[in-house]
């Protein structure tokens, strides 16, 4: 075991995967010599050579399209889209190709491919370095979509994604790379090195795709969330003094519906939190699942706390971000309902 940041955990996952399987190749913009703008691929080119870890031209459709060809050949490409906001040029390759190749060829060709992309805001990145496009990916049949909230999950989910026979999107909440950010932007963040979830196994281990985790058990209400918002929910729970059960979904597609049903049936109240814009966001799907499976257990309306339906702003970042105050207000409202 070692104490790792989320970045180091992601590096370690790449390292272990490349070491145990020579079919694993890693590429993307700035990922080779430089090791990635967030350093998630640092040291790989030096260790495994430039034929297995290399820089790519600035063309996301090219990166994903080439990776699909490599996956069809029999390699296991793990590519980085530098920011999730840059995935749109690759969207056709992701939606119409990677996600569909197994089905459309009836299993003749497959696409075991991992696409990593830093997601979410909180770093003053403005509208082109802050987006959370998970709903644009969870709507696509044939994809799997994961989003870790801590170093241990980041490594375990990435290892599982690399071992998976189908295309997996790994959304990495960039605000969590160095520590569990709780939305109080005016306070220092506790680094992962001093956090229990920063304790990560050095070797190979994986966290199964499709399994949610109870981050914090409780009985008053259920929070369904993922990524950065896990810690925002925790801050709000502490500040309200409510006994909140926080479910870290970890995998958005396929969704752990049993875990959701069990928790909400127990608490009777549900708050859904995500940083992405509200309308047609992933929270809408979660809300529908809760309504379909837990309607008779509900004591209060299912409530969403999300980013506003605006482009992600720069100077107004903290007015946009669904921070602990907005989350706490939602907790109180569902308890009073």
């Amino acid at each position: 075991m070692a104490q790792m940041t989320m970045i180091e955990a992601i590096q370690s996952a790449h390292d272990v995967a490349m070491d145990r399987d020579e079919r694993v190749v890693v590429f993307g913009e700035d990922v080779g010599y430089f090791g990635g703008v967030f350093r998630c691929t640092a040291g790989l080119q030096e260790k495994y050579g430039s034929h297995r870890c290399f820089d790519a031209p600035i063309n996301e459709s090219g990166i994903v399209g080439a990776a699909i060809g490599m996956a069809a050949y029999g390699l296991k490409p793990v590519v980085e889209i530098q920011f999730a906001d840059y995935m749109y040029p690759a969207y056709d390759q992701i939606v119409s190709e990677a996600a569909r190749i197994r089905h459309r060829s009836n299993g003749d060709f497959t696409c075991p491919l991992v696409i990593r992309m830093p997601t979410g805001g909180g770093i003053f990145g403005g509208q082109t370095h802050s987006q959370s496009p998970e709903a644009l990916l969870t709507h696509v049949s044939g994809l799997k979509v994961v989003i870790p909230s801590n170093p241990r999950d980041a490594k375990g989910l990435l290892m599982a994604a690399i071992d998976d026979p189908d295309p997996v999107i790994v959304l990495e909440p960039k605000r969590l790379y160095n520590g569990p950010f709780d939305g109080h932007h005016d306070r220092p963040v506790v680094p992962w090195k001093k956090h229990a979830l920063g304790d990560v196994d050095d070797g190979h281990f994986s966290i199964p795709l499709g399994e949610a985790a109870i981050y914090r058990p409780g009985s008053d209400l259920t929070v369904l969330t993922y990524g950065t918002m896990v810690y925002v929910a925790e801050a709000a729970a502490n500040e309200t003094g409510l006994d909140v059960e926080i479910m870290d979904l970890r995998t958005l597609l396929p969704l752990d519906m049993d875990a959701i049903e069990t928790s909400v049936a127990k608490t009777g109240r549900c708050v859904i939190i995500h940083e992405a814009t509200r309308t047609s966001g992933f929270g809408a799907e979660l809300s529908a699942v809760v309504q379909e499976t837990c309607f008779y257990a509900l004591e209060a309306p299912v409530t969403r706390v999300c980013g506003w339906d605006t482009p992600y702003p720069h100077a107004q970042e903290w007015a946009y971000f669904p921070g602990p105050d907005r989350v706490a207000a939602a907790f109180r409202a569902v308890m009073e309902a």
């Binding site: 080439a66 056709d92 003749d108 060709f109």
Partner: peptide, 20 residues
């Protein structure tokens, strides 16, 4: 390779296969 109706997508995939 399995045919796509979205034109042009397979051109870069061929390059990726060759790279592999």
């Amino acid at each position: 390779f399995t045919i796509s109706g979205n034109l042009g997508t397979q051109f870069i995939q061929a390059v990726g296969w060759a790279m592999a």
